[in-house]
Amino acid sequence: MAYRVIHYINQFFGGVGGEEMADHKPEVRVGQAGPAMALHAALKGEAEVVATIVCGDNYCVANQKEVAALVATTVKKYKADALVAGPAFNAGRYGMACGTVCAAIGEACGIPTVTAMFPENPGVELYKAGTYIIPAADSARGMGQAIPAMAALLLKLLRKEALQSPEAEGYIERGVRVNMFYEKPGAERAVDMLLLKLAGKPFTTEYKMPVFDRVTPRPGITNMAGATIALVTSGGIVPKGNPDHIAASSARSYGEYDIAGVNDLTDTTYQTAHGGYDQTFANQDADRVLPVDVLRDLEREKKIGKLHHLFYSTVGNGTAVASAKKWGEEIGQKLKEANVQAVILTST
């Protein structure tokens, strides 16, 4: 009997419409729609796509739990053995949707999940630990390559075959450690590795040491009364209305905002864009996250020189470390050019 697969796709690939239909609510279609037809064919009868779920990207990203619950119900209803999502290519919200649905279903239903996206899609960094992601091209031109690769990996997972390394199997490394039995005891492997290292020959470590980015703190400020101090936050404080549309989670940008003449952040002028904590108190008084009021007091009391007229803000909720590092370097450069002596970094 063929394995039963459910395929999750977005409104565009489901034929509902483009960006204007991104709020399309999830619908379940019996059988195959859009890319599910190609997947169904690539599974060559060993598995079949029994239903296709079509959902708007914005709707999914904004209602992740609800969509995941609907997918889980559909998996049970159709007695599905696996879930496939995408390919999302380089569509950021589609990548997020595929990632979140796959990770949630893998955990809730304990079935294999496979998706595909462009390696730089933000969904990769966020969800690679929770699902198998096939690297895809940055646009739908890569459909013909992605679908057979997804089908091949899916069938291996369904057959419960032991997977080789990510390179050998052609999926993006999940960063998940799995135990295995080697041919030789660890002690012999260690001496073998030492001999290769001594001979300057290539060797493969069994565990790549994690890299911690350590920054040496600058010496303390000697003359605070003459110093320009800036505020930078990952707590998501933005002018009311979130003009730069900084995402509530997995931010893809940061904002730069002028606070010249602003002495107090109020509920009518500022808010938080952060979706990872209870926003109530930050929205009541954004100074609780970004203390402009207190720094204005210090300015008046001449305890600091002045508060820099620009502040920088992003959301540190599931945001990839690689993105945070890049923005930190950019912001640091801007502050340096503006002759700022010190920064107060606030989180949540």
Binding site: L163, S165, P166, E173, R174, G175, V176, R177, V178, N179, M180, F181, Y182, E183, K184, P185, G186, A187, E188, R189, A190, E206, Y207, K208
Partner: peptide, 21 residues
């Protein structure tokens, strides 16, 4: 595995190891 005597012995007594998927 933590509870099993010698399971992840760091003198490399066993054949067990791990890899990244």
């Amino acid at each position: 595995l933590q509870a099993i005597l010698g399971a992840t012995n760091e003198l490399g007594f066993n054949k067990i190891g791990a890899y990244t998927i």
